[in-house]
Design a binder for these strands. Structure first.
Lengths: 230, 230
DNA sequence: CGGACACTGTTCGATACCGTACAGACGGTG
DNA sequence: CACCGTCTGTACGGTATCGAACAGTGTCCG
């Protein structure tokens, strides 16, 4: 029933203790689970196709995603450590189900269950690595590569081959222009890696996407120019 | 004697237990404490003016810093959670003293001391926030702003007003050209925020640097053009 | 079935940054 | 004090991306 990777890592006893404090919720795309500066909040353990992005918003309305959590993990764990939300916004990218618990309640619980605390800490570390990787990628890769990476990440998190994402939303995640995403998307489409229509992206070739996503700068010359294709 | 922020946060009993397992070491700038893929290693608690950068290296020799730790914290904590090094390189940016302990030993210790584990987890979270902030800044800010940010960060971590950093090293931290750093450095110098000569950067105006580092895109027009100054 | 809205396609000039290359200046060493 | 390695200054053309528009096209709703 409850297929959450993080919960599955817990000792059986702790799983029971945790779930007894949780309630099921439905998350809708676009919903904001936590805004910057919040002192407390809920911890969400995501199920099935749900995904939540950690977004940093700069002065204007535009944003930049620094991480994406899915059914393998959770968001809001900082509240279970007694820490504030920081500068993040938790933004639901993909609708779906989740279990949630109050941060303060979980803090008291994990304060008694060392195994649980250790599991949470480990997840935070792994997640922060992903943040660093995304940051590094954003620095050195062009938009098609970054788009491929984000699509790939969304697929891995949700296990869905069709993603409901508009170019505008992706632009916000990558911190680039909407028009830039359109070009990059057409690029990926021309290579037969994805197909899309009006807010739906169909993944056709996972390995191909991975190749593009991890391509180094120098490799780019090998690839065909957009305009010459079909 | 031992002025490390993270150790100071521990309960007194845990401080003793931890320090008994540590040995003092001297770290020299340029030294690499951990390479990507390492399965285990030491945890370093940094003292006084020491600073260590978390660097992600892309295919070539060039890199990109995603975080900087100083005497307020530690590096290598993932080893105390039984996790591998990930894709990071731990690179000493600023020479100085540190205490270190074996990761596996600390893992056993923190497995018994819940307060210690909680403190470590909290630090990891706060640090990963900083990583996200740096990533976001790199995305939307120009080179002078990012340079100001890094100098500021180095100052906060080491509490030194003169930093021993070459343009080439800074370029590697920011993931930009060496020439780009030279221009940005001249920019900051012309505004009277820093002075520098051959590998030494003198901080003249901390608040001014902060202003530049946090300036949004739109604010940039207010500032004077480099070439028109003096 | 026609209108409205949201999404995608495409254009324009502007610009910040890149890769590369070389010239000048500091500072320690023989 | 002349040398040489290291560091900084500057230049060049090339390009990915930007900001701001406006023009098509799909889908839903009345």
């Amino acid at each position: 029933m409850l297929h959450n990777g993080l919960v599955a890592q817990l000792p059986p006893t702790d799983q029971g203790l945790l779930l007894r404090r949780c309630e099921p919720v439905e998350l809708k795309a676009g919903e904001i689970l936590s805004a910057p500066g919040a002192a407390s909040g809920h911890v969400y353990f995501l199920l099935s196709g749900t995904s939540v992005a950690l977004v940093v918003r700069n002065g204007g309305g535009s944003g930049l995603a620094v991480g994406l959590a899915g059914r393998e993990g959770a968001v809001g764990l900082q509240f279970a450590l007694g820490l504030g939300a920081g500068h993040f916004t938790l933004l639901v990218q993909s609708s779906g189900a989740a279990f949630r618990a109050d941060g303060a309640v979980l803090q008291r619980l994990s304060g008694r269950r060392l195994g649980m605390l250790r599991t949470f800490a480990g997840y935070l570390w792994v997640f922060s690595q992903e943040v660093a990787e995304l940051a590094a990628a954003a620095q050195v890769q062009d938009i098609p590569a970054r788009l491929a990476r984000w699509i790939l990440l969304s697929q891995v998190r949700t296990h869905q081959t069709e993603l409901q994402l508009t170019h505008a939303h992706l632009a916000d995640m990558l911190g680039v222009r909407r028009a830039g995403v359109t070009l990059a998307a057409r690029n990926l489409k021309n290579r037969g890696l994805v197909d899309y229509r009006r807010g739906r992206i169909q993944i056709l070739n996972l390995e191909g996407l991975a190749t593009v996503a991890h391509a180094q700068q120098g490799t780019r010359g090998d690839l065909l120019d957009d305009n010459e294709l079909v």
